[in-house]
């Protein structure tokens, strides 16, 4: 069973990371509790990998304080040994095979489950005896996924773990993640821009954009927290007046307006009587709208496919 006591495992205070000409992390404040699956969402280059690097002491912040299990993770083998972070662009020794990488992982992660790793090698149809540098992008991702899951580290970071994986392999990953997490509760941070695919797996959502945290909320309280109202423009305008509008589209005399509000049963009935249609907003759409509202790129008219921008480039 999960959802029991959840003490704080990571705390981030005023962390900024400056590169020569850009701010990759902008005064980030976060607290992560143990035993949850976190979704770290955001566009490419939003700061997801930078944040995870800083949390695992693989990278360095310019200012601010990071604590993992109450200690600074930098150069602390005691803290690091309880963490696993395989980068999206993880490098392996040139002459290593996946089987050898797993053998190395078994030396460093106390909770390593070799039988579990072997099962996943079969499921992903990974050629474990082929050199890693000869693997395809998808097979390379599978190596990272297997190390991440089989390490059973108390905090495991997955950095866009599905790159190059086909739909079947991604489903295997999600299924194994849910199943293994249920049996061995721990903290998972899943960085992704394929939000629809992972939405239901998440307990908590962190949305980062241009190095700033836009959303840091329980996934369930986000779900259904916005709604799209569709109908004749005048009526839609009347119904949504005075509400926080995330997105507005018009087409001929019709309008489709997404509002940041959870409607009561009475309000839903009222919309029905006015002949307005209410459409649910997926987590992905909501994230896209919030990102755009924050950047000020949206609130324009007639951008039908704007939500594809966050994700569909892959």
């Amino acid at each position: 069973m999960t959802g029991t006591a959840t003490p704080e495992v990571i705390s981030v205070r005023n962390v900024s990371k400056k590169y020569k000409d850009s701010l990759a992390l902008d005064n980030v404040d976060l607290t992560l509790e143990g035993g949850k699956i976190y979704g770290l969402l955001g566009r490419n280059g939003a700061g997801k990998t930078t944040l995870m690097s800083v949390l695992t002491a693989q990278g360095f912040q310019t200012s601010g304080e990071v604590r993992v299990f109450g200690h600074r993770p930098y150069e602390s083998d005691r803290v690091l040994g309880r963490i696993c972070f395989i980068r999206e662009s993880q490098k392996y020794p040139d002459d290593f095979t996946p089987a050898q990488a797993f053998k190395a992982a078994s030396m460093f992660f106390a909770g390593w489950d070799q039988a579990f790793a072997d099962r996943m090698v079969e499921e992903f149809q990974l050629p474990a005896k082929r050199r890693i540098k000869k693997l395809s992008r998808g097979q390379l991702s599978a190596v990272g996924v297997i190390i991440g899951l089989a390490s059973r580290a108390e905090i495991t970071f997955f950095d866009e773990p599905y790159l190059g994986l086909d739909a079947v392999a991604r489903q295997i990953f999600y299924d194994r993640l849910v199943q293994d997490f249920a049996e061995h509760p721990r903290t998972i941070v899943l960085s992704s821009h394929l939000i629809d695919e992972v939405a239901n797996l998440l307990e908590h959502v962190i949305l980062i954009d241009k190095g700033r945290i836009l959303v840091d909320e329980d996934a369930e309280s986000i779900r259904g927290s916005a709604v799209t109202v569709v109908g004749p423009a005048a009526l839609v305008g009347e119904f949504t007046a005075g509400r926080s509008v995330l997105h507005r589209e018009t087409f001929a005399s019709l309008a489709s307006v997404t509002i940041d509000a959870r409607l009561s049963a009475r309000e839903r009935a009222e919309a029905g009587e006015l002949g307005l249609e209410l459409a649910p907003v997926t987590l992905q759409q909501l994230i896209v709208r919030k990102t755009m509202a924050a950047t000020g790129t949206d609130l324009s008219v007639g951008e039908r496919d704007s939500d594809a921008e966050l994700e569909a480039t892959k």
Binding site: D77, Q90, K91, F108, F109
Partner: peptide, 20 residues
Amino acid sequence: IMSMTQTFPFSQAMSVSRRT
């Protein structure tokens, strides 16, 4: 050269501190 360019990044993924 190799142990620094290839083994070091891998050791980071294995949660090994730089000193170790």
